[in-house]
């Protein structure tokens, strides 16, 4: 314990950047959000040293729940090594002195933008989503007064109008991300722009899922083991995305794949969007069809170097 006596974070800042009153205010909102799954709790969002749209909501939620002994993982579109993920990790190691990791299994808090990790989460973990638009009905009903009433009285027929429009135009439900869900059989919720591939992972998840929208100043949550149903029609049931390909690097056929352009001659490959999941599999000896290809490996290596910083 004595090691903790010495502050490990930059003492020019309060622990985890936000002042204690703000953190308490946000924690109260989080508790309310957990008590009413899927309900959007307003909170007094602060200015963060980060532009709106880069995760100001998520970073405030993380700052409020993180403790000095926690281990933090940050992903952006599944990747641990993109600018947003790297700078948020560095931010917290500076202002909170916390350990950071890329391993999903080792993390206590995972802040995410637009993905849920492939590795199953466990009890005690907290998944913090960055949310640009918390209101699933906004594109259909611009009035906040009206959408609040619709949530209050559970009038959600309008959401199905959007799905109807999809089927009428494309022959199937063409919404692939931000796919609306019903939480605990009561509140309609936007899952943030995660691909609908990840929607089934929210259902009955043992981890706590917190959603922070910085610009809109809303927090909502899914407590562990809560029912989360994706909306659909009886004759057009919900279906997650599928791929004909498997990951070119690790050969996984059950993960969310990104298409990567390799050259100017139409060369491309599909790779896991969850970089940690992919590396883990490669370390265990799994190889995809381009697992030995120099260009593909070069891609994987730059990714590795990115993580090393």
């Amino acid at each position: 314990m004595s090691a903790v006596q010495e502050a490990r974070w930059d003492e020019a800042y309060n622990f985890a950047y936000l002042d204690e009153q703000t953190k308490r205010m946000i924690r109260r909102s989080i508790l309310k959000a957990i008590a009413v799954p899927g309900y959007q709790v307003p909170f007094g969002g602060r200015e963060m040293p980060l532009a709106y749209g880069w995760g100001t909501g998520g970073i405030q939620v993380t700052a409020s729940v993180i403790g000095p002994d926690d281990t933090l993982k940050v992903i952006d579109q599944g990747a641990d090594d993109t600018t947003n993920a790297v700078s948020i990790r560095r931010f917290f190691s500076r202002v909170a002195g916390v350990e950071t990791t890329e391993a999903t299994e080792e993390a206590d808090i995972i802040q995410t933008r637009h993905r849920i990790p492939e590795a199953p989460l466990r009890e005690g973990q907290v998944l913090v989503y960055q949310v640009p638009q918390p209101e699933p009905l906004r594109s259909l009903e611009p009035r906040e007064t009206e959408t609040r009433k619709m949530h209050g009285y559970a009038e959600y027929g309008l959401m199905h109008v959007r799905l109807y429009e999809d089927i009428a135009r494309y022959g199937h439900i063409a919404t692939t991300y931000s796919y609306p869900v019903m939480v605990n059989g009561r509140y309609l919720m936007s899952p943030s722009p995660i691909p609908k591939f990840d929607n089934p992972k929210m259902q009955g998840n043992p981890a706590i899922q917190l959603f922070g929208a910085g610009r809109e100043k809303r927090i909502y949550a899914i407590p562990p083991y809560t029912s989360v149903k994706s909306l659909d029609f009886d004759d057009h049931p919900f279906e997650p995305q599928t791929w004909d390909e498997s990951c070119a690097l690790c050969g996984a056929d059950n993960s969310y794949l990104d298409e990567v352009v390799l050259d100017d001659h139409g060369g491309k490959m599909f790779v896991c969007s969850d970089t940690h999941f992919c590396e883990d599999r490669r370390a265990k000896g799994h190889r995809g069809e381009l697992g030995a290809d120099p260009a593909a490996l070069a891609f994987a290596r730059t990714a590795d170097e990115g993580e090393a910083q």
């Binding site: 027929g157 199905h160 004759d235 057009h236």
Partner: peptide, 10 residues
Amino acid sequence: RLMAIGARHY
């Protein structure tokens, strides 16, 4: 209106 009163069959 039909969807508002619970019609869920496209």
